[in-house]
C-alpha cells in the first residue's frame, strides 16, 4: 500500500502563476514597444481628416482619433515613452533610495536622524502634485517628467533599505568582516548592498505599476511628452472630449495603461513570492 502524503498541483496551475503571467505581459509590452515601427499599420502621426473618429474596423483595428490618426499604431508607439520614462525613474530612484537608506541604517546616530527626517518630509508630499509643480517649473518633457516623479518616489526605497540594514548590521558575518579589516564603503557596497538589493528589485517592480499611472497622469494633464508624439495619458485626455460618442478613442489608451500597470504589479507580486521566504507556502 503506497499512499502519497503530498498534494501535487496540476502542471498548468504551476505554469500560470503570478510571476509567469506578469513576466509574459511585461516581455510582450517591451517587445511591442521595441518593434512598434514594424508592427504598426500606419504612421502614428500622419493626420487624415477624412478618416477622423472611425470606429474599429478591418483597416483601423482600434479606430481613429480626432485627427484621423490610427489608434492601434499610436498605442503601440505610446508604449515607448511610457517605458522609457519608467526606466528613467527607476534608474534614478533605486540608487538614491538605497544609498540614503543604507547610510542611515549603517551609520546610525545623527546621520540616521537627518536622512530619515528628510525621507519622512519627502514622503509626506503629495507626489503627483509635487511632480506637476516641478514640471511646470522645469518645463514639460520626458526627462523633466522622469525627474519630477523620481523626486517623490525614492523615500520608500530608503525606508526599506534602512530597516533591512538595521536587521543585518549586527550579524556575525558583518562583524567578522569588520574584524578582518573590511570597513567603510567596501563594507557597504560589497557586503551590505548584495543583501538589500533583491528586496529593492521587488519593490521597484511593485512601484512600476504606480509610476506608470503617475506618468499617464502627467501626460493627461499635458505635462508629459508634448503632442503630436503619441503618449497614453495625453491620448486619454484628447479622447475624453468625445468619450460619449466615440468611447474607443479614450478607452484604447486607457486599457493600455491598465494592462501595463497590471503587468508590472503581477511581476512584482510574483517576484516577492519567489524571493521572500516569508511568503513561501
Amino acid at each position: 500500500m503506497i499512499i502519497s502524503q503530498t498534494w501535487r498541483g496540476l502542471p498548468l496551475r504551476q505554469l500560470f502563476n503570478t510571476f509567469n503571467i506578469g513576466l509574459l505581459l511585461v516581455v510582450l509590452l517591451v517587445v511591442l514597444a521595441l518593434l512598434a515601427p514594424y508592427i504598426s499599420t500606419f504612421d502614428p502621426n500622419v493626420q487624415n481628416i477624412q478618416d477622423r473618429l472611425l470606429a474599429p474596423n478591418a483597416q483601423h483595428w482600434f479606430g481613429t482619433d480626432r485627427f484621423g490618426r490610427d489608434l492601434f499604431s499610436r498605442v503601440l508607439h505610446g508604449a515607448r515613452p511610457t517605458l522609457l520614462l519608467v526606466s528613467l525613474v527607476i534608474l534614478l530612484t533605486v540608487p538614491i533610495g538605497l544609498t540614503v537608506g543604507i547610510c542611515a541604517g549603517y551609520f546610525g546616530g545623527w546621520v540616521e536622524r537627518i536622512l530619515m527626517r528628510l525621507t519622512d518630509i519627502v514622503m509626506s508630499l503629495p507626489s503627483l502634485v509635487i511632480a506637476l509643480a516641478l514640471v511646470s517649473i522645469l518645463g514639460p518633457g520626458l526627462m523633466n517628467g522622469a525627474l519630477a516623479l523620481a523626486f517623490t518616489s525614492w523615500p520608500s526605497f530608503a525606508r526599506q533599505a534602512r530597516t533591512e540594514t538595521l536587521s543585518i548590521r549586527r550579524s556575525d558575518y558583518l562583524t567578522a568582516a569588520k574584524m578582518q579589516g573590511v570597513s567603510g564603503w567596501r563594507l557597504i557596497f560589497g557586503h551590505i548592498l548584495p543583501l538589500i538589493l533583491p528586496s529593492a528589485i521587488v519593490r521597484a517592480a511593485l512601484n512600476l505599476g504606480g509610476i506608470i499611472l503617475s506618468a499617464a497622469g502627467l501626460g493627461f494633464l499635458g505635462m508629459g511628452i508634448q503632442p503630436p508624439a503619441a503618449e497614453w495619458g495625453s491620448m486619454v485626455a484628447s479622447g475624453s472630449r468625445v468619450i460619449f460618442d466615440q468611447w474607443w478613442v479614450a478607452a484604447v489608451p486607457g486599457v493600455a495603461i491598465l494592462l501595463a500597470s497590471l503587468a508590472f504589479n503581477l511581476l512584482g507580486d510574483g517576484l516577492r513570492d519567489k524571493m521572500d521566504p516569508r511568503h513561501d507556502k
Binding site: 500500500m1 503506497i2 499512499i3 502519497s4 502524503q5 503530498t6 498534494w7 507556502k281
Partner: peptide, 27 residues
C-alpha cells in the same frame, strides 16, 4: 516530523506500512 504529520508539502512521504496509535495516518 512525519510522525506528527508536520512535513512540508514539498516532501513526498511513502511507506509500506505506517500506523500511529493504530491509525493509518499516512492518508
Amino acid at each position: 516530523r512525519s510522525l506528527m504529520g508536520l512535513l512540508a508539502d514539498s516532501l513526498v512521504v511513502e511507506a509500506d506500512h505506517f500506523q500511529l496509535l493504530g491509525h493509518p495516518v499516512l492518508s
